[in-house]
Computed example of a mutant assay.
Amino acid sequence: MASGGRADPPDENGPRADGSDHRVPGGQAPEEYGDHRGRGDHDDHGHEHRSRWPLIAAAGAAGLYGGAAVSILGRETGLLPPLLGVGLAVVGTVVLLAGVLGWLEQAFLAPARDAQGVSKSRESYVSTTLLFLATDVSTFGALFIYYAFVRIGSWPPEELPPLLGSLVLVNTAVLVTSSVTFHYAHEALEGGDRRRFLGLLGTTLGLGLVFLAGQVYEYYEFVTAEGFTLASGVFGTAFFGLTGLHGFHVALGVAGIAVLCWRTLRGHYGPDRDTSVATVSLYWHFVDVVWLVLVAVLYVGASV
């Protein structure tokens, strides 16, 4: 209690000084609250345990990449059956998706359904997201290194299709614009303009879906009109491996933005309750930067 008998004001990042729980004005729970009693990631005293889902996702990714390596090694050397690698890659993909979905459920969906519980540190989520993105750089880096080895050989390869066209330019403009709209959406939220925040966030979601549709159409044109597929030599493997991995990241980002839109409609965000928005924004800007590097190295670089 403060002097004069007045109660301590609520702390947006945790309980009151006297240990009691609190709500923000209007009865709205803080953004990252969730009823975690009885859940495996918290004990009865509210101490947060480490989530198992990132470890599961990492194990799945290892199975996916290991399976792809075994399949390629088996096809090129005959030391291992290629189908063994395919099976391992399929299992790894399933485990990876399960880990990602579990992570999404724990970090975004569960707090949206629950009304109160243990608060979570904004700094913890942001720093964890930055760590994840730092490790994700190595995933893209491995495929870029593979592409660099492809370029060491005779160039251009026979299977090289016309890569630079209006479609990739439009798709690039769409993704860059979506990053801009996300930035200003977050600024609107911090300024307390909820209507503008929702409008710009919805625009970002729409642009992300347009980008994915454009990539699907590009694949369709390459396969049907050019006969250019994943099996079209080492360059085909590099091209579809890099663009497919990036497209997978965009799809995950679109899913995250869709959850943000849903939670915004439920009134879960405010100037001081933006943890999920900050983390998804970091991820989306990362995906945008990777695409610009990919266009410069793969589309433009392969055409010169």
Rank of each mutant, 00 (worst) to 15 (best):
G165H: 15
S166I: 15
L167P: 11
V168I: 15
N171K: 08
N171L: 13
T172S: 11
V174W: 05
V176Q: 01
S178K: 04
T181G: 03
E187C: 00
E187R: 15
L189S: 09
E190H: 04
D193P: 01
F197K: 12
G199L: 04
G199S: 02
L200S: 00
T204V: 07
L205A: 07
G208F: 03
V210I: 14
F211T: 06
L212H: 05
G214R: 11
V216A: 14
V216G: 14
E218G: 09
E218D: 14
Y219W: 15
Y220N: 13
E221F: 04
F222W: 07
F222S: 03
V223G: 10
V223N: 11
T224I: 11
A225S: 13
A225R: 11
F228S: 00
F228Q: 01
A231W: 09
V234C: 04
V234S: 15
F235K: 10
T237W: 14
A238D: 03
G241C: 10
L242C: 05
G244A: 13
G247A: 14
F248R: 00
H249K: 05
V250H: 00
A251C: 02
L252F: 12
V254W: 03
A255C: 13
I257F: 06
A258N: 06
V259G: 04
L260C: 06
C261H: 09
W262S: 11
L265W: 07
R266M: 09
G267Y: 13
G270P: 03
P271G: 08
R273N: 02
D274S: 13
V280C: 00
S281M: 07
